[in-house]
Design a protein around this nucleic acid. Structure first.
Length: 385
DNA sequence: AATTCGGGGTT
DNA sequence: AACCCAGAATT
C-alpha cells in the first residue's frame, strides 16, 4: 500500500533487527568517558582482591548498594580472606549475614570458600567459577571480568534495562538475559571488561532508571533505540506480579532463671535456613489465640520434646517478604525446661540459651530481631525454671 | 518457565 | 500498595 506508492513505511521498532545501534568501540568509548566522570566511590571499586570483589557481588544480589554498605566492611573484617571464611563455622557466617536476607547466599558462599581454599587458588575463568555454589551466570561473569579482566558480559537487572533500551529489545526477563549477553559481548571486548561492565550497571542505577530515566544526561542518548521511539517506559517489560500469601507463626518465649531466652535452630535449608529463632512454627490462618496456644504447645512437644504450658500472647510483629506476609505471635511459656533428646524428623537439632545482649551474635532473621525488640523486659516474664 | 528464597527503599 | 533491587537454585 504505502510501499507501492513509494512512500516510506513508518518505521516501527518491532520491525528492526535486534542489534547494537552503533559500533562497539564507539559505544564503549562514550560510556567509559561518562563512567570515569560520574562513577560513585564504593568500597569494592578498584579492589584487586578477587575475594573482596566476590563478597561484594554476592551481597549485591537483589540487594541495593545502600544496604550492602552497612554489611560489607564488617563482614570483611570478620572474614578477611577466603581462608578465613573457609575456616569459620557456618553459624558465625550467618550471624554476619543476619538481616541481609536470602541466607542461601551465605550458605553457598561458605561452601564455595571451602572448595576454593582446599584447591589453593581462586578460579579465574567463567566456566570454573560457574560450577561453584552461588555462582550463577551473572556472578561468575562479574567476578571473571572485574577481578580477572576476562571479557565476560555481566548481565544484572541494570544491564537488562540499559541494554534492552539501547537495542530496543522487547523481550522480558529472563529470556532477555540470554539475548543481551550475546549483544553485550562485543562491548566488553572493546574496552576493559571490569570498567565496561561496571559502567553499564552504574548507568542503569544513576541515569537509565526504571522510572523517569535521565536521558539528557545519558552517554547513549543518541544511539538509544528506546528513546528514538519514546519507549523508555515500555522497555523492559515488567514481570507478572506475584501473589503474596499470609503466613502466621506462633513462637514460645521460654525464659530461664538468668533471664536468658531459649532459641532453636531452623533446618539448614529453606526459609530462614540455619538461622536461630524463638521455637515454634506455623499455625493455621484465621484461628484465635487460644487455638494458637494449643497448636504451639503440640508443635513444641513434637519439635523440641518439651512439655510447655502456653499462656497468652505477649507480642506480635509482622514482616513483608517477597511472596509472604509473615506475622509472628510470641506466647509466654512455662513448664518443664526443654531437654533435647532424640528428636523426630522436623524437630530442632540444636537449641541454645542467650540473653538479649548475646543474641546479637546469633544468626537471626529481621523478624526475629523485631520480635526481641518489642518483648517486655525479662523481669515481667514468667520463668520456666 | 515458574517458584522459592529477605528485606527494604522508591514512587 | 506496587515495583524491583549488581540473582541463584530448584522443580
Amino acid at each position: 500500500m504505502a510501499d507501492e506508492r513509494g512512500e516510506p513505511r513508518p518505521e516501527r521498532l518491532r520491525d528492526r533487527p535486534v542489534r547494537l545501534p552503533d559500533r562497539p568501540d564507539r559505544l564503549t568509548g562514550s560510556l567509559l568517558r561518562w563512567y570515569r566522570r560520574a562513577a560513585r566511590t564504593l568500597p569494592w571499586r578498584g579492589s584487586l582482591d578477587p575475594y573482596a570483589i566476590w563478597v561484594s557481588e554476592v551481597m549485591l544480589q537483589q540487594t541495593r548498594v545502600e544496604t550492602v554498605l552497612r554489611y560489607y566492611a564488617p563482614f570483611l573484617r570478620a572474614f578477611p580472606t577466603v581462608g578465613a571464611l573457609a575456616s569459620a563455622e557456618l553459624p558465625a557466617v550467618l550471624a554476619r549475614w543476619s538481616g541481609l536476607g536470602y541466607y542461601a547466599r551465605a550458605r553457598a558462599m561458605h561452601a564455595a570458600a571451602r572448595t576454593i581454599a582446599s584447591r589453593g587458588a581462586f578460579p579465574d575463568a567463567f566456566e570454573e567459577l560457574r560450577e561453584l555454589p552461588g555462582f550463577g551466570a551473572y556472578t561468575a561473569a562479574a567476578v571473571a571480568a572485574i577481578a580477572f579482566g576476562r571479557p565476560e558480559p555481566a548481565i544484572d537487572g541494570n544491564a537488562v534495562r540499559v541494554l534492552a533500551r539501547l537495542c530496543g529489545l522487547r523481550e522480558r526477563r529472563p529470556a532477555a538475559e540470554k539475548t543481551l549477553r550475546e549483544l553485550a559481548r562485543p562491548l566488553v571486548a572493546a574496552g576493559p571488561p571490569s570498567e565496561v561492565n561496571q559502567a553499564v550497571m552504574e548507568l542503569g542505577s544513576q541515569v537509565c532508571t526504571r522510572t523517569a530515566p535521565a536521558c539528557l544526561h545519558c552517554p547513549w542518548r543518541i544511539p538509544c533505540r528506546a528513546r528514538a521511539f519514546g519507549l523508555q517506559g515500555e522497555i523492559p517489560a515488567s514481570r507478572p506480579r506475584l501473589a503474596r500469601r499470609p503466613l502466621t507463626w506462633a513462637a514460645a518465649v521460654c525464659l530461664d532463671g538468668r533471664g536468658r531466652l531459649l532459641f532453636a535452630r531452623r533446618p539448614p535449608a529453606g526459609l530462614f535456613g540455619g538461622l536461630w529463632e524463638l521455637p515454634g512454627g506455623e499455625v493455621a490462618q484465621g484461628i484465635g489465640t487460644a487455638d494458637m496456644a494449643r497448636d504451639l504447645s503440640a508443635a513444641l512437644r513434637r519439635s523440641l520434646g518439651a512439655h510447655l504450658t502456653i499462656a497468652e500472647p505477649m507480642a506480635e510483629v509482622t514482616q513483608r517478604l517477597t511472596h509472604r506476609d509473615l506475622r509472628v505471635l510470641a506466647f509466654a511459656a512455662r513448664g518443664v525446661p526443654p531437654r533435647p533428646r532424640r528428636l523426630p524428623p522436623g524437630g530442632y537439632l540444636e537449641t541454645c540459651l542467650a540473653g538479649r545482649a548475646a543474641a546479637i551474635d546469633l544468626g537471626l532473621s529481621s523478624v526475629t530481631r523485631k520480635l526481641l525488640a518489642v518483648l517486655p523486659p525479662p523481669a515481667s516474664m514468667t520463668q520456666i525454671c
